[in-house]
């Protein structure tokens, strides 16, 4: 058992325990309907959270994602309904904008050595402001493409509807795992988060990787915005306010260390679904205030951070406790 898997294991166990508890109360938790709804309702958060996972593993933070999601929705709605633009073109343009937006933040963070917190906080205000400037109304989108996408549904025998959003979420999940573990970029993100100076000395292109991490995060946030726009069929500048906090919480609950270097995309997936499960439970129960979700998340988050703290004060930090010795070194 390697210590870096431990947070992930805890996440899984907590998720299974909570899901089992919910299932024992409401058997519908065993249906594809609940599963599909979980995936659909959390798709935009999940997609952005996967981007955020890379950011946090790299040792950074991205506060702009919630605003980027909202801006994307508003921009698409305006371009499609007011300007009559082809949605595909609007998507391409907004993805390009999101990519550049992230890259610019990355450049500021790396080259000007401004803390990511400040840069992305600015980005958060900027993107939100741009969304409000475009429009403060909620705009409905009635483009035929949107209708077609909404009909792209696989229906399970128990009427579980596997929507486009759910599919996009899972696709990004697979892509995220692939990037994290099977590309040099992914491994470099881990290396950088573990020790940036060392990574630099070891030949990791730290500058490029930093910029790419924020680019990826903004790109995925933009994509999350498109997915949300497609499932809501509207654009609204007031949505996903504070979503970045839910997303960061999901990543941390998913076992990613805020100090960087350790984390798993699959953990984030669980971390995103966990609040969804609780929300579903509260909805089905009906008697409890839905705001209990915040309390549960708060407790979970605190628990996970406390656990991380305990794990990170590993013996190696204290020379006087250095008990780990070479196990079997043979000298010639």
């Amino acid at each position: 058992m390697k210590s870096r898997f431990f947070p992930l294991l805890v996440t899984f166990l907590v998720f299974i325990a909570i899901y089992a508890y919910c299932y024992s109360h409401f058997s519908s938790f065993g249906s594809m309907r609940v599963v599909c709804n979980l995936l659909r309702d959390n798709a935009h958060l999940g997609i952005a959270a996967i981007g955020m996972t890379f950011v946090i593993i790299s040792g950074g933070i991205d506060l702009s994602v919630g605003s980027v999601i909202a801006f994307t929705g508003v921009f698409c709605a305006l371009m499609i309904t007011r300007e009559g633009m082809d949605p595909r073109l609007a998507f391409a343009i907004v993805l390009g904008m999101g990519t550049i937006f992230g890259a610019v933040m990355g450049v500021f963070i790396y080259y000007l050595k401004i803390p990511a917190f400040i840069v992305t906080l600015s980005g958060m205000f900027l993107a939100r402001g741009m969304a409000y400037v475009l429009t403060t109304e909620s705009i409905r989108i009635t483009d035929p493409l949107y209708i077609r996408v909404s009909k792209l549904v696989y229906i399970f025998p128990d009427k579980g509807r596997f929507t486009f959003a759910a599919g996009a979420f899972l696709a990004v999940l697979v892509l995220g795992i692939y990037i994290a573990h099977f590309t040099r970029f992914g491994r470099n993100v881990y290396a950088m988060g573990g020790n940036e100076t060392a990574a630099l000395m070891m030949g990791v292109p730290v500058g490029r990787t930093t910029i790419m991490v924020y680019t990826l995060s903004s790109f995925l946030a933009t994509f999350a915005g498109i997915v949300l726009s497609l499932s809501k069929r509207s654009g609204d500048s007031t949505i996903t306010v504070g979503a970045e906090m839910d997303i960061i919480a999901a990543v941390v609950i998913g076992g990613t260390l805020l100090t960087g270097g350790v984390g798993y995309v699959i953990g984030t997936f669980i971390g995103v679904l966990l609040p969804g499960v609780i929300r579903t439970y509260l909805t089905l129960d009906g008697s409890l205030s839905p705001w209990w979700i915040k309390i549960v998340i708060g407790v979970l988050l605190f628990g996970f951070i406390a656990m991380q703290k305990l794990l990170s004060t590993r013996p190696r930090l204290f020379s006087f406790r250095r008990q780990v010795r070479p196990t079997n070194v043979s000298t010639a």
């Binding site: 390697k2 870096r4 692939y178 573990h181 099977f182 590309t183 040099r184 992914g186 491994r187 470099n188 881990y190 290396a191 988060g193 573990g194 020790n195 060392a198 990574a199 070891m202 030949g203 990791v204 292109p205 270097g261 350790v262 190696r316």
Partner: peptide
Amino acid sequence: LIPTLSVAENLFVGRQPRFLGMV
């Protein structure tokens, strides 16, 4: 070196061996 990566990965950071383009 990177304390949070395995010994093997530390040896190959920045030049990870790839198979069919995948690390």
